[in-house]
Design a protein around this nucleic acid. Structure first.
Length: 527
DNA sequence: TTCCGACAGTGGGGTCGCAAT
DNA sequence: ATTGCGACCCCACTATCGGAA
């Protein structure tokens, strides 16, 4: 029978995932996944974890929703696939390159799915599209790994965050290695610490005591490692982007001291030092061409220096060290003490507000307020860092609504939003121009209401989208407006979410909705 | 008993590279 | 040269579970 080195049957994984999906109880999900993980040979753990997370170890496979929708052969009658079989097929997908690669990928995919049973096909399609819908991703799986290996979950979590790799952590745990010995290591990217959010700097400051208030730059997160003088850079999701940021490599290469791990943000600036729109940063950062348009970088944290990990040191200590290392590349901000007689709540709030105003005046997104006593909580969105950004609201008209998917199946979900175009400058669309969509901010009550109401004012239905008489006004919050080639007005909403419907006591007629010009005032200077 | 931290899910905007057309 | 797909940068918000208070 199957020895310890044999590859687990795919069907065992599929049925564990089905068990996890079938219950809402997290402890039951954990138990279901732990049971199957306990049977996995340690060497296969990264592959298994990759499958359960819907992010295979091979990385980008070049197969997405569209491809799997068109390539579904008849399922096999009986289960025969092992985890290793799937892993091999995924490697073929991942390594197909050049002319004819699409055909070779299609062939490999068809072959794999043809050897899978119907339930295995469903599982593999979810893996390939990254939509597991088991209610058990990294958080729950971390608990399951701890349970399967009889290791405290806190130890597993810390190892996973500091190694940036849950699969490797699972392998080590199942192999009986001492996870407590895993520490932050220069050259090994670590899960970045994230920030919660608050509506105002006053609230953020009140929640934290002594704080650092730092500019929030509208660029891409960058984690930079220097090992024996060699510099590498990683994104927030830990993808390596060293070759895209030569200016950062050069800058960090010149910093004093030995091995380093720094946390910061990169973006493009105007000639006069003003922040460029995020789209411009991505145009440079997202591609291979590093020609003109230099990237600027600012650092706000140091996780390793002077031959030791600093993740457990308070932010105040890390700041002191950071300042000495990066000098002018330090992110702008202010330190605001707390607790003393001379720095009452009103003074502290005013100082924080000043920094917030200065950040906006310089074209930045807002601020991040950070507790000075807090350690670097890798991979956590804790309460020790709180971001504050301005929010703008507009009254827009619902032009159409899409049918929802997943847990929103059977509900009308995603709204098409229009701004008023009284002069018909942007085409003849009944006096309104579509400027974006949103599905956010909708409670179950609101989803139920709009599912009942919108069909009563529908003017068309293509099976997916109901077009509506433009008469329902909804108050939408956004972070800003960006230029768009998709929408006829040349602008699109950024991070739109519903605040409330302007119906009933709040009623507002569509004729009084906000206009394209109202939105255009929020479009940043394009330079 | 109530509260709240952490998680998963549901999708939004744009950008690029790449292969096919 | 253009188009469509996939990957990935930014992201908000609600519902839910289960441990903390």
């Amino acid at each position: 029978m199957s020895g310890p080195q044999a590859s687990p049957a795919l069907s065992a994984l599929v049925s564990a995932a089905a068990d996890a999906a079938a219950t809402r109880s997290r402890t039951a999900k954990i138990a279901a996944l732990a049971a199957v993980l306990a049977q996995v040979p340690p060497a296969q753990a990264p592959v298994v974890v990759g499958l359960l997370l819907g992010s295979p170890v091979q990385g980008r496979l070049g197969v997405g929703w569209r491809t799997v929708a068109s390539e579904r052969p008849a399922p096999a009658a009986a289960a025969s696939l092992s985890v290793a079989d799937v892993d091999e097929a995924f490697t073929v997908l991942a390594t197909a390159r050049g002319a004819g690669s699409a055909a070779r990928r299609t062939a490999a995919l068809t072959d794999l799915l043809g050897r899978a049973t119907a339930t295995e096909q469903d599982f593999l399609v979810r893996v390939l599209t990254g939509e597991m819908r088991t209610g058990a991703l990294a958080g729950v799986l971390t608990d399951a790994i701890g349970q399967a290996a009889a290791v405290p979950v806190a130890v597993v979590r810390r190892a996973a965050m500091l190694s940036g790799d849950l699969g490797a952590t699972a392998r080590a745990a199942l192999a009986g290695e001492d996870l407590a010995r895993i520490t932050l290591t220069p050259g090994v990217p670590v899960q970045p610490m994230l920030a919660a959010s608050a509506p105002s700097v006053e609230e953020a400051v009140a929640a934290l005591g002594p704080v650092s208030v730092e500019y929030k730059l509208d660029g891409a997160r960058l984690q930079v490692h220097r090992v024996d003088g060699v510099v590498r850079a990683y994104t927030r999701s830990l993808a390596e982007v060293t070759d895209r940021v030569p200016e950062v490599v050069e800058l960090v290469g010149g910093f004093p001291g030995g091995d380093l791990v720094l946390d910061g943000e990169t973006l493009t600036l105007d000639a006069d030092g003003r922040a460029r729109p995020f789209q411009d940063t991505m145009s440079r950062f997202g591609g291979r061409d590093t020609g003109d348009r230099p990237l600027s970088v600012s650092f706000f944290d140091v996780l390793y220096a002077q031959d030791r990990s600093l993740v457990d040191a308070p932010l105040s200590d890390r700041h002191e060290l950071l300042q000495a290392i990066v000098g002018p590349a330090l992110i702008p901000g202010a330190l605001i003490p707390g607790g003393g007689a001379v720095d009452g709540p009103a003074e502290r709030a005013r100082a924080a507000r000043d920094t917030f105003d200065a950040a906006l005046a310089a074209g930045h997104e807002g601020v991040v307020v950070k507790a000075l006593g807090a350690p670097y909580a890798a991979g956590r969105r804790g309460a020790d860092w709180i971001k504050v950004k301005p929010v703008y609201t507009f009254d827009l008209v619902v032009l159409a609504v899409e049918r929802g998917s997943g847990r929103r199946t059977g509900r009308l979900s995603n709204l098409h939003l229009g701004a008023r175009d009284p002069d018909g400058r942007f085409g003849d669309a009944g006096g309104f121009v579509m400027v974006g969509k949103t599905f956010k901010g909708l409670t179950d009550d609101l989803l139920r209401w709009q599912t009942e109401f919108f069909p009563t004012i529908a003017t068309g239905d293509d099976g997916y989208v109901l077009t509506l008489a433009p008469e329902t006004v909804v108050e939408v919050a956004i972070d800003g407006v960006q230029r768009s080639s998709r929408y006829p007005g040349g602008l699109a909403l950024r991070f739109a979410r519903v605040k409330r419907y302007r119906t009933g006591a709040d009623a507002k007629p569509a004729a009084h909705a906000d206009t394209v010009d109202d939105l255009l005032q929020r479009l940043p200077p394009q330079g």
